[in-house]
C-alpha cells in the first residue's frame, strides 16, 4: 500500500544508502575490476578478459570445493533445522524456565567465530582436549588432524553447536505467537501430538522457518573462520571450502585476478541458490 509521497524521506535513508555503497557496492565493483585484469604487483594491471573465469570453471579444485560446500550446507540444514524445531517445541512456554532457556540458547551466538574455532580446536585435541582425550580413552580413534572424516565431523558438530540456537530462537518466536485456542481446539478434536505439530505448529512456523533456512544456508555456504582455525582446510584438502580456497588464492598466492573471478562466481551461486530456496518455499503461499 502506498503510504507516503514525501520526497524528504529520501534524506532519511541516505546515510544507509551511503553505508551500503561503501560496504557492498564499491568493494563489489573493485572485485569485478580485478576479475578481468592481471597484475604482478606494483599496481600494474593488464587486461585479461574472461580468462580467469575460464580457468576457474575448468579447474577441478574449484568444483571439488564447491561440492564440499554443497554437501556441508546440506548436512548443516538437515541437522540444524529439525534439531532447532525439536528444541523449540520442548522449550517451556511460561514461567522461570523461559528466560533461563533463552539465555542458554543465546550464549553460543554471542561467541565470536574464531573463538568458537579455537575452543573446538583445543576441545578436540587428543593430547590436551577434553573431547579428544575422552574419546581416545574410550578406545575411539579420533584425530581431526589426520583423518578427513574426523575433521568433517568436528566442523559439522561445531557448526551445529554454534548455530542451532538461532533456528531454535526463530522457531520459538513463531511458536509462542500461536493463540492458546488452537491448542485447545486440537485437544478437543482429539488430535495427536504429531497432528498438532503437522497442522498447527508447522504451518504457523513456516514464515520463520523460511528465514531460518535462508540464513543458515547462506551462512553455512560461506563458512570460513571455524574450519580455517580448526583444520586449516585439511587434512589434505578435505575441508577446503570455497572461502578457504579463495583466501588461499588471494592472500596466500596473491593471485588477485583468479581470486576476484572466484569471488564473483561464488557470489552468484549463493544468490542463485538463495533465490531458488525462497521461490520454492514461498510458492505454497500463492495457491489457495
Amino acid at each position: 500500500m502506498e503510504k507516503t509521497w514525501n520526497n524528504k524521506a529520501w534524506f532519511l535513508v541516505l546515510p544507509v544508502l551511503l553505508l551500503v555503497a561503501f560496504s557492498a557496492v564499491i568493494p563489489l565493483m573493485t572485485v569485478v575490476n580485478y576479475s578481468v585484469q592481471d597484475t604482478f604487483g606494483n599496481n600494474e594491471f593488464f587486461w585479461a578478459g574472461t580468462d580467469w573465469f575460464d580457468e576457474i570453471l575448468h579447474s577441478a579444485r574449484f568444483w571439488e570445493a564447491l561440492q564440499r560446500n554443497l554437501v556441508f550446507s546440506f548436512i548443516i540444514l538437515a541437522l540444524e533445522i529439525p534439531l532447532g524445531i525439536f528444541i523449540a517445541l520442548n522449550m517451556p512456554k511460561k514461567g522461570l524456565g523461559v528466560p533461563i532457556c533463552l539465555v542458554l540458547m543465546a550464549l553460543p551466538l554471542l561467541i565470536p567465530w574464531n573463538v568458537v574455532g579455537t575452543i573446538w580446536q583445543v576441545f578436540g585435541r587428543v593430547d590436551i582436549g577434553l573431547l579428544g582425550h575422552t574419546l581416545a580413552a574410550l578406545g575411539i580413534d579420533y584425530n581431526y588432524v589426520r583423518d578427513p572424516l574426523d575433521a568433517w565431523i568436528t566442523v559439522v558438530v561445531m557448526d551445529v553447536w554454534h548455530w542451532t540456537s538461532l533456528v531454535v530462537l526463530l522457531c520459538y518466536a513463531g511458536l509462542v505467537s500461536i493463540p492458546d485456542a488452537y491448542y485447545q481446539a486440537a485437544k478437543i478434536d482429539g488430535a495427536s501430538r504429531w497432528s498438532v505439530f503437522r497442522y498447527i505448529q508447522l504451518p504457523k512456523m513456516k514464515r520463520v522457518l523460511l528465514i531460518a533456512v535462508l540464513l543458515r544456508f547462506m551462512d553455512s555456504f560461506m563458512i570460513y573462520t571455524e574450519p580455517f582455525v580448526v583444520t586449516g582446510g585439511g587434512p589434505g584438502n578435505s575441508t577446503t571450502f570455497l572461502s578457504i580456497d579463495l583466501v588461499k588464492t588471494a592472500v596466500g598466492q596473491f593471485d588477485l585476478g583468479p581470486a576476484a573471478a572466484m569471488s564473483i562466481v561464488y557470489f552468484l551461486i549463493i544468490l542463485l541458490l538463495s533465490w531458488i530456496f525462497y521461490t520454492v518455499m514461498t510458492s505454497h503461499d500463492a495457491d489457495a
Binding site: 493463540p179 485456542a181 488452537y182 485447545q184 481446539a185 478437543i188 478434536d189 482429539g190 488430535a191 495427536s192 497432528s195 497442522y199 498447527i200 504451518p203
Partner: peptide, 25 residues
C-alpha cells in the same frame, strides 16, 4: 466440543479435511 471467539481452523487443510479431522483422529 468447543467453538472459540476467533475461528480456529487448520489453514493447510481443505474445508472437507477440517471437518473430517476430529472423526479421523
Amino acid at each position: 466440543a468447543q467453538v472459540f471467539q476467533f475461528p480456529v481452523i487448520y489453514d493447510t487443510m481443505t474445508v472437507y479435511d477440517n471437518l473430517a479431522f476430529p472423526l479421523r483422529n
